[in-house]
């Protein structure tokens, strides 16, 4: 095989391989949204996190704006402390409401942020004051049955 042809094919192969890696990173892994270099960290206390896991998405209006990076149990307040990392391009007001939601009926759980109206924005390391726990299906069913029972009385 001619040396130039060989170089051409190998060059093409390496280019295709690198393109594939880029597609995986950008289009599949969504690296552009989740850039580790420009993040700010928020914490929030939740009474019950349900099935929330580390790396679960943080969404606002359905758009992924960050991810859960850590979940700890606090022995002072006896609730869950969730640390999340948000993209700095998306600042949120101080009175943002964080709730643990479920994608579909049985889908994965994520944190939904609903922006408030405060003028002051959240900074790196701030604590979300307004949180809403996960809906636990058993509790819902229990409450529903209890309501039904009290209705029929």
């Amino acid at each position: 095989m001619q040396r130039t042809a060989l170089d051409f094919w190998v060059g093409l192969f390496v280019l295709i391989g690198i393109t594939a890696l880029m597609i995986l990173s950008m289009k599949v892994g969504n690296l552009s949204v989740y850039n580790t270099s420009q993040n700010y960290v928020l914490t929030g206390h939740f009474e019950n996190i349900g099935g929330l896991k580390v790396r679960a998405p943080v969404k606002s209006a359905g758009v992924v704006v960050g991810r859960v990076t850590d979940i700890q149990f606090s022995t002072q307040t006896y609730d869950a402390v969730v640390t999340m990392s948000l993209d700095s391009r998306f600042p949120f007001p101080k009175d943002t409401f964080a709730s643990i939601l479920t994608a579909g009926l049985l889908g994965e759980q994520y944190i939904g942020l609903a922006a408030g109206g405060d003028e002051v924005m959240l900074k790196d390391g701030d604590k979300l004051m307004k949180t809403n726990s996960a809906m636990v299906l058993e509790e819902l069913i229990g409450r529903f049955l209890f309501d039904k029972a009290s209705e029929s009385d």
């Binding site: 892994g29 690296l31 998405p57 991810r67 994965e108």
Partner: peptide, 12 residues
């Protein structure tokens, strides 16, 4: 759905 589930560091 793929983008929200696949993580760059952990998966790719």
């Amino acid at each position: 759905q793929m983008q929200s589930a696949v993580d760059f560091r952990f998966d790719i």
